[in-house]
């Protein structure tokens, strides 16, 4: 699934939160969105997902779903929702359901049968680490890490062609972070899906992403192709420069 952003701007009062002239993501890419707090990562996610109104510009998703060409502007149509999965924060979770009920709810509204759901959940077994299913607990009573896992699994259950995850490594313990990395790599490989991940964890982001986009003050400063050694040193240098500038 391709994603194209054209002349996108968004400001909150006097503050320019986003200003992207042109940005294109190609099918099958895993994009890592990095930047300091307030860089505009979550705002960009929200605009892509039509949860926030852009001042100008548009976001277009196009590609093939089951061999059929699709194309739509996310603010003008709801068609993209069928092949897009996303988790931004706990505001995506219906927290008075148990994880099982939540997954079943998503499966039902996505047209997934019970046996298929069962098989799909098995694929997340390692990631869930025995802490999600069968706990007889509502989502609101889970730890932040486990809520994060429920949200991520919920976003991936219907096998979306485009997956957006905002800070997916947050709140996860080291084992789950590694499982998360493996999960994303496997998913991308198996489904040829386009994945956009924002994160403050540079190591994990660099490990899994084929492309890294550096966002700062709403602007795309750099767009790196994967070359781990060069990327690592360049990005670290950038953030070190930012820090020394502040100090």
């Amino acid at each position: 699934m391709n994603l194209t952003i054209e002349k996108l701007t968004k400001s909150f009062g006097d503050k320019q939160a986003l200003d992207i002239d042109h940005y294109a993501i190609h099918s099958g890419e895993i994009i890592g969105l990095v930047g300091n707090n307030g860089a505009g990562k979550t705002t960009l996610f929200r605009i892509i997902l039509d949860l926030l109104h852009a001042d100008t510009g548009c976001v277009t998703i196009d590609g093939y779903v089951d061999g059929v060409p699709v194309s739509c502007d996310t603010a003008k149509s709801e068609e993209w929702k069928a092949y897009t999965g996303a988790f931004v924060d706990t505001g995506f979770l219906i927290d008075y359901l148990t994880p099982e009920e939540y997954f079943r709810f998503i499966a039902k509204i996505s047209g997934i049968k019970d046996d298929v759901l069962h098989d799909r959940l098995l694929q997340f077994d390692g990631f869930m680490n025995g802490e999600i299913l069968g706990q007889k607990t509502l989502i609101r009573n889970l730890s932040m890490g486990n809520k994060q896992k429920v949200g991520i699994i919920g976003a991936m259950l219907h096998h979306p062609h485009l997956l957006l995850l905002d800070e997916p490594f947050n709140f996860l313990d080291p084992t789950s972070q590694l499982a998360m990395k493996y999960l994303l790599e496997t998913y991308s490989h198996e489904h040829k899906a386009t994945i956009i991940v924002s994160s403050h964890n540079l190591t994990h982001t660099l490990d899994i992403c084929s492309r890294i986009t550096l966002l700062e003050h709403g602007l795309i400063l750099k767009d790196y192709d994967r070359d781990y050694a060069m990327l690592n040193s360049e990005i670290e240098e950038y953030f070190r420069g930012q820090q020394s500038g502040k100090i």
Partner: peptide, 16 residues
């Protein structure tokens, strides 16, 4: 409103 984002990224959920 507590989980509106989750509803809005799915098609016609609010109508249902």
């Amino acid at each position: 409103g507590n989980y509106i984002d989750g509803l809005m990224v799915r098609k016609e959920t609010v109508l249902s």
